[in-house]
Each structure stands twice: as C-alpha cells, then as structure tokens.
C-alpha cells in the first residue's frame, strides 16, 4: 500500500522547494545575462543614441497589451485571459497564501474563492482554446512545433487538477491522487520556466530594446568579419 500523503508531502515540500529554487535562480541568471549582454551590445555600438521613448512605448504596449486585441481577436483575447488567470490564481488563492504564510512570515490579501474558481476554469478553458486555435488556424499550424502545443497543456494541468482539488464534488478521482498530480504538475511547470519560452516572464521587458540594439552596429564589425573570413581586399 503506497502512502500517498507521504508522496504529496515530498512533492509539495523538498521537491517543490527545489523546483522553485531552480525556477528563481534560472530566471535570475537569464535576466542577469540578458542585462549584461544589453550593456555589452550598447557599449560596442557605434551609435549610442537610442530612441528611448519609442522603445519604452513599444515595451509598455506589449507588457499591457489590452490595445492589441484587434489582430486575431479571439486568439488575442484568449491569450489575455490565459495570462490574467495563470498569474493571479497561484499568487492570490487563499489555499496558496496559507501555505506561504508560515514559510515567509508575511501574508497578503486573498481572492474570493468564487473568483478563484472562475479564473481557474478560465485558465483551463483558455489553455485548451490556445491549443485548439493554434491547430485550427492555417498560419499558426504552419509555424507551430510540438513545444507550442505542449506548453499550454503543461501550464493548464496544475489548474485543472487544482480545480478538482478545490471542488471534490466535481472530482471523479481520489482526492489524494488528484492532489499529487496537482503538486507534481506545478513542480514540472516551475522547472520549465527558465528552459522554455516561458522565460519571456523575465525577458519580455527587454525585447524591444534588444531588437533596437541589434540595429546599432559596432563601427568596425564589417571589417572585422572581412578579416576573420580572410576576405580583406577580395574583389566584390
């Protein structure tokens, strides 16, 4: 007989702490490397004048993309709903805050459970919606790779299992198995953050700047490339 509670405690205890540390350290490393490379690119650039205002405007437009829903409206709206749900629920669910409190020694306001349920349902529906819309539209179907379909599902899993944990009446499976699945899928998600495109969580604020900087060439890059390829003096 397997003692499920032991496994749940392990997955929610040491394993969770390891996964969380992996995520935080991984993302911090990504962000630090990104910042370092930005400074390095800027220092190498021949023209150090950047259109700061335009870069900032574009950055804010995509950090708060409410005005961008017009393009692929349903897909964009689904994306927004998905992001709102997956950011808010893990942080402000009463059950989660109660877990953090003894650990961090601080508490913060929690969301009403009805709202939490609604947002969790929204997260699951939106995750499925993203996968279905990706497959249904010709343009995205042509572009997509396995990872693009898999990630919304992996992100949706802790929400689906969390919903069943919160509402035992809806749950056809045993509570403990569901809880174990919930905690394990959350651990997996944390580990994936720094390794996949989910790292946009820390990289997105800099992408507009990064794109702008790429147009700011080092003054001698062309000649250095020519030298490296032994093409100096070679006829055009």
């Amino acid at each position: 007989m397997i003692d499920l509670q032991t496994w749940i405690d392990w997955a929610g205890g040491p394993l969770f702490r390891a996964a969380l540390a992996f995520m935080l350290l991984g993302l911090a490393r990504r962000a630090a490397l990104n910042a370092w490379e930005i400074v390095r690119a800027w220092r190498r650039a021949g023209d150090k004048q950047l259109p700061w205002r335009a870069v900032l405007r574009a950055t804010l437009r995509w950090l708060f993309p409410l005005g961008q829903v017009g393009n692929r409206a349903l897909f964009s709206a689904t994306t927004l709903l998905f992001h709102a749900a997956v950011i808010l629920v893990p942080l402000f669910l009463a059950g989660h805050v109660a877990l953090w409190q003894p650990w961090l020694g601080i508490a913060w306001p929690v969301m009403p459970s009805a709202l939490a349920t609604a947002l969790t349902v929204a997260a699951v529906v939106a995750a499925l919606g993203l996968v279905i819309q990706r497959a249904a539209s010709r343009a995205t179907r042509a572009l997509s790779r396995l990872e693009d379909y898999a990630l919304p599902i992996v992100v949706g899993l802790p929400f689906l299992t969390g919903l069943l944990v919160m509402h035992p009446g809806w749950n056809p499976f045993s509570y403990q198995w569901t809880m174990l699945a919930h905690v394990l899928s959350a651990d997996l998600l944390l580990v994936l953050f720094p390794l996949t495109k989910l790292s946009h969580m820390v990289l997105l604020p800099a992408t507009q700047l990064v794109s702008e900087l790429a147009w700011h060439f080092p003054p001698d890059a062309g000649s250095r490339v020519a030298a490296a390829l032994r093409k100096e003096g070679e006829p055009i």
Binding site: E37, V225, A228
Partner: peptide, 23 residues
C-alpha cells in the same frame, strides 16, 4: 564571424528562445 564581431547575437538568442509562433 558575424556573431563574434557584430551586435546580432543578443537579438538572435532572444528570438530563438522566445519565438512563440503565434501568427
């Protein structure tokens, strides 16, 4: 050579990581 001497690597690295193929 271009990655070594130019300013493109940061952008390519970011794009390669984050490209979400949303259409």
């Amino acid at each position: 050579a271009v990655l070594r001497h130019g300013n493109y690597q940061l952008a390519l690295d970011t794009y390669a990581r984050l490209s979400t193929r949303c259409g």
